[in-house]
């Protein structure tokens, strides 16, 4: 990791505040830095502001205060900046059916890089590369709704990998997966050479994949520490409506 120290962090969120048009304040000055190559879990109960924060990372929402930088580039409303930010931040949304909207897997994976201007052989290579990374290469011509839920989620990951993002942001990646699909996805995510921010309240999944975790509650970062340390602090977890599953004891893997 020492070689990376000189580079700007993949994600640098500073003092981000956000109020919805109706006046409800969702974020009260959030600070979060994710160095390049790290895997970080963003934990928090429902309504903590996790999704709102995620929508700031690629400029879909504009903060009322504070800044977001991705690999040294600060998010702004400027057209070219926004396009580059959306290439750098790959968001995998919770419901793969929201993400996969085209008739075939390959077309959907091609959508992002095609928006970046790629065409022809270069585009096809990107698609193959991304599908291979999630082990879905042989399904490239199938329709998304013919795939299993776990396969659809893997394709959803591929659709943003194809844009070669600086940071991969996953919203509840383990939700609705059966145990085998959950493990397969974990193996794939662990093997990806990319910075990763994982939004979840699946604590064992965070422990399995991320060395560091951040707890967001009521629009504020309330804890930022090694995952095992956080998960061992029962009082902290209980205060923020987080619970380990029955019988789960956090330990170094």
């Amino acid at each position: 990791m020492i070689g990376y120290v000189q580079q700007p962090p993949s994600l640098d969120v500073r003092g981000v505040r956000y109020a919805y048009p109706d006046g409800h304040v969702a974020l009260h000055g959030v600070d979060l830095t994710v160095p390049r190559g790290d895997r970080v879990a963003l934990l928090g109960p429902n309504g903590a502001g996790k999704t709102t924060l995620v929508l700031h990372l690629n400029g879909i929402l504009t903060p009322t205060g504070g800044t977001v930088s991705v690999g040294g580039l600060t998010v702004s409303r400027e057209r070219d900046t926004l396009a580059e930010i959306r290439r750098r931040v790959g968001i995998v949304f919770q419901d793969p059916d929201d993400q996969l909207f085209l008739p075939t897997v390959a077309e959907d994976v091609a959508f992002g890089p095609a928006n970046l201007g790629l065409r022809g052989a270069e585009l096809a290579a990107r698609v193959d590369e991304a599908l291979a990374a999630v082990g879905m290469a042989e399904h490239r011509d199938r329709a998304p709704h013919h795939l299993s839920f776990g396969q659809r989620r893997r394709v959803a990951v591929a659709t943003v990998l194809a844009m070669r993002p600086e940071i991969l942001v996953l919203d509840e990646p383990s939700s609705n997966l059966d145990p085998a699909a959950r493990r397969e996805l974990a193996e794939i995510l662990r093997g990806l050479p990319v910075t990763l921010l994982m939004v979840t309240h699946d604590l064992p999944y965070a422990a399995e994949l991320c060395d560091r975790s951040v707890i967001l509650d009521a629009g504020r970062v309330v804890a930022d520490a090694p995952t095992l340390e956080l998960l061992s602090d029962e009082r902290l977890l209980a205060e923020h409506r987080l619970e380990l599953p029955y019988g789960f004891v956090p330990r170094p893997s």
Binding site: Y20, D22, G59, I60, L61, R77, R79, L82
Partner: peptide
Amino acid sequence: PAPAVPVAGGAR
């Protein structure tokens, strides 16, 4: 009335 869901601002 203000929409409850954030209206996304695309680049334009």
